[in-house]
Design a protein around this nucleic acid. Structure first.
Length: 427
RNA sequence: UCCCCGUUAGCUCAAUCGGCAGAGCGGGUGGCUGUUAACCACUAGGUUGUAGGUUCGAGUCCUACACGGGGAGCCA
């Protein structure tokens, strides 16, 4: 039996294989918290109920020893998680000595050095289970709407957007770079499959050292032919709503373990508020932030803005100078582009960046020249505007920031199993 | 790249004005039949990050370096 099947096994004699999470001893009764990956269950060894040897073995157990226990499942209010196992038999597979992570406090540095073991802790288990649920619901959302998953390459010949610092690697006798975005490839795929998305790791060699940055992070990037700017925002709202609902529905135990107050999540219902970039600047100044039209937002500005709303908020119509070259200018206000960032509530900043893309060949070429991009490397991308070009839109959602927000974590380093942090790549 | 803080037992941290290096957890031993990060008693455990300097005397003050944390910029 797996521990999360306990409620269907009350009064059954079952076998649980796992690890000792923690122990308590009280004379003739020993309580062993056993974890098996699916959950944690208290196992009770009473001296009067078991053979002498079983009781003696149980006394010797240590944190993270691997064991097999057999006994009867009982419902009991005194047990953490509501069910417990009355142990009859116990097998020790390995008696662990000096497990480094104790049930008391540890510092971040120590825990990150032991990330491979830290994953066994209840809190990390809960967070990564929510991560899985978010990934699954994102996939389900797009799959059920007729999207095709198209995997983007990770080794790329040049910068996708030409702005950020990339990790460089050898590709035989050429230089290649780790992908920072699959978007341009998704644009090609959208012209072949209509509605597509990719979901994979992306890499930034920026020397960013904040609670919101990783060198390697996961991004899901949908791209849809014929999708307008307005429809793009609706797609994002529905996606966020779906993901949050799925987490609330399927991760009750996990949210409880990390003590997430779900009230704020329950408010995440479309439509989301929208604010024009121009109005956002004005609002920020009213709030005492010194920022002028044409400046990009930093972390502080995003937080001030997001705190004005209880739901995620779209900031749209940025000046084209501070946004990527491929974004479609608004014909009614050509200094701005059909782009929107979605800012998460509670200070988590940008979790989505999206836009309508330029579909006119001449305009795209002009914007690329303005941005000093090496045109010869982008001939394939220009081809998309040579052969049956259509309006299209898409966006990218950052998985780790989304999880950090949903789980209300202080730092993104806990949102990914093995974070790649600034100049730190162990374990 | 810049700014701030830190480095003392396996871990988390104390140590007053520069004057005997301590506690909790974890380890060990013993006790307890319903514990919830259990509790109680006893016990072992130290080149105070490294190298120099000031001083009768440095965990404490000064300099350099290393490592870690927080933030800025950059970025998502």
């Amino acid at each position: 039996m797996y521990i999360n099947e306990a409620k269907d096994n009350v009064n059954n004699y079952v076998e649980v294989k796992g690890w000792v999470y923690n122990m308590r001893e009280s004379g003739k009764v020993i309580f062993i918290l056993v974890r098996d990956g699916s959950g944690i269950m208290q196992s009770v060894v009473s001296k009067n109920d078991v053979d002498e040897k079983v009781f003696e073995d149980a006394k010797k157990l240590t944190q993270e020893s691997s064991i097999v226990v057999r006994g009867i499942v009982r419902e009991d209010k005194r047990a953490p998680f509501g069910y417990e196992l009355l142990v009859k038999e116990l097998e020790m597979l390995q008696l662990t000595e000096n497990y480094p992570i104790t049930p008391k406090e540890h510092g971040v540095g120590f825990l990150m050095e032991h990330r491979h073991l830290w994953l066994r802790s209840k809190r990390q288990w809960a967070i990564l289970r929510i991560r899985h649920r978010i990934e699954k619901s994102l996939r389900d959302f797009f799959d059920s709407r007729g999207f095709t998953l198209i995997d983007a390459p990770i080794l790329t010949p040049a910068a996708c957007e030409g702005t950020t610092t990339l990790f460089e690697t050898n590709y035989f006798d050429e230089k290649a770079y780790l992908s920072q975005s699959g978007q341009l490839y998704m644009e090609a795929a959208a012209m072949a499959f209509g509605k597509v998305y990719c979901f994979g790791p992306t890499f930034r060699a920026e020397k960013s050292k904040t609670r919101r940055h990783l060198m390697e992070f996961w991004m899901l990037e949908p791209e849809v032919a014929f999708l307008t700017f307005e429809e793009n925002l609706k797609l994002q709202e529905e996606m966020i709503y779906y993901v949050v609902q799925e987490v609330l529905k399927n991760c009750k135990i996990e949210l409880d373990i990390i003590e997430r107050d779900t009230k704020m999540l329950e408010k995440v219902v479309p439509p989301f508020p929208r604010i024009h970039y121009r109005d956002a600047i004005e609002l920020l100044n009213k709030k005492g932030v010194n920022i002028k039209y044409g400046d990009d937002f930093g972390g502080d500005e995003e937080t001030v803005l997001a705190n004005e709303f209880e739901k995620p908020v779209f900031v749209h119509h940025f000046p084209k100078e501070i946004k990527a070259f491929y974004m479609q200018p608004d014909p009614e206000d050509p200094g701005t582009v059909f782009a929107a960032d979605l800012l998460a509530p509670e200070g988590y900043g940008e979790i989505i960046g999206g836009s309508e893309r330029i579909h006119d060949y001449d305009l795209l070429l002009q914007r690329m020249k303005e941005n000093n991009l090496p045109i010869e490397n982008y001939q394939w991308y220009l081809d998309l505007r040579r052969y049956g070009s259509v309006p299209h839109s898409g966006f990218g959602i950052g998985l780790e920031r989304t999880l950090a927000w949903i789980a209300k974590l202080p730092h993104v380093r806990e949102t990914i199993p093995f974070p790649r942090l600034l100049e730190k790549i162990y374990p």
